[in-house]
Design a protein around this nucleic acid. Structure first.
Lengths: 206, 206
DNA sequence: TATATCAATTGACATGAGTCAAAGCGCTTT
DNA sequence: AAAGCGCTTTGACTCATGTCAATTGATATA
């Protein structure tokens, strides 16, 4: 692991851009990284928000001509460890177990992306908002914080900030939840779950 | 490879359903397999059309509790080889090269799915239709056939058949292409490419 | 040749979500 | 306390796509 390096980024600082050649991958130690795609008209869609403890871009090292399919910028102060792909690849060749672990990780991502495509093409914006909030809510606690700005959430779930705001408003008016700033309180978790899967795949199929 | 089995399916026959436990994966020998997700309201979104020569569902064997995240049915008469996941997993443990190959394959899929998400959230239906047609067109030939029914194409690109039909009509009216039945003729490839990426990622970034 | 069936097309209409523009609110800076 | 700045909210309006329903076309079955 000689060639692993620590990297620090300020809020909004870019790590790499879509199309850059990929020779390293990363582990988030602190903060968040947002991975996004840009449309020529300037619109951006967040593909993934990577939290501390997770790696990203390691899948690219297996492509012949590895280029980042997304751009990456820091959300808040963030710290990373950057790992040389060639180094890691050499290590991989010595460990079938590590290979299998990676394979497992990639399977998982594959499945997440399939779910997202499902979400985008089969569910309404309201469903996505509800599902997102649920995904951020702790198991047994109805009070929690959104640790990312709302316009970021909006882009993550492919909705405009204005629309996001209106959907939240309507959920409030139905007494399903309360939101003040970044503080969320779930008033009726069940109703929120309903809203989330008025199309949400039957549980067994996730 | 003892436990590999041949499977034949008639048109429309189901291979497995979303949520089924996955213990095998498949190689298409002849015909096509459509992988899809269903919404409770009956809507269906085709995640992938697998043509002869390609495998699918092999990524699942690395998950702890492997269930198919999609359903699979045959399009046209199709033949497959079904491979036992446990068998294959054993073989994998003996070959780092095979592991690497699989890893490469999965990276590729990951990237395709990211592109699709990009497509769904950043591009219009017209872009998707244009891109799809281009993706089916041979390199240096402007006459070719769509070997799948139009409503299947429509679902693949997340568009209703009616909308698909209208977009085609408008492309015809602009003298960009001709379509009669399943026969397509490109009249103005460049214009079609334009239509496809009036948002299509800059070439280098794919 | 008739007929049932399924795919594709067309028209009229409904609607969810985007756009644009203006406030409002919560920060930090001065 | 005032001013400035970005994020969020709200309102009015537009537009792309979906929905519903009817028609046409094409292929298979009797």
């Amino acid at each position: 692991m000689r060639r692993a390096k620590a990297v620090s980024l300020a809020d909004g600082e870019s790590l790499f851009q879509q199309g850059d050649t990929a020779t390293r991958f990363y582990l988030v130690v602190k903060g968040h990284i947002k991975l996004f795609r840009l449309a020529p008209d300037g619109n951006e869609k967040i593909i993934e928000l990577v939290d501390a403890g997770h790696t990203f871009a390691e899948a690219l090292m297996f492509l012949e001509q590895p280029r980042f399919p997304v751009g990456a910028v820091a959300l808040g102060e963030t710290e990373l460890i950057s790992i040389d792909a060639a180094d890691f690849s050499a290590i991989l060749r010595d460990s079938v177990d590590l290979c299998m672990a990676l394979l497992g990780d990639m399977s998982f991502r594959l499945r997440s992306l399939i779910r997202e495509i499902d979400d985008l093409s089969l569910h309404s914006a309201t469903c996505r908002v509800a599902a997102f909030i649920l995904s951020r809510a702790p198991e047994h606690c109805d009070d929690f914080e959104l640790d990312i700005p709302k316009h970021v959430i909006a882009s993550r779930i492919s909705v405009k900030p204005e629309t996001f705001s209106r959907i939240i408003k309507s959920l409030k008016s139905k007494n399903i939840l309360e939101i003040r700033g970044s503080k969320v309180r779930l008033l009726d978790r069940e109703a929120l779950e309903d809203a989330a899967d008025v199309c949400g795949l039957p549980v067994e199929a996730t």
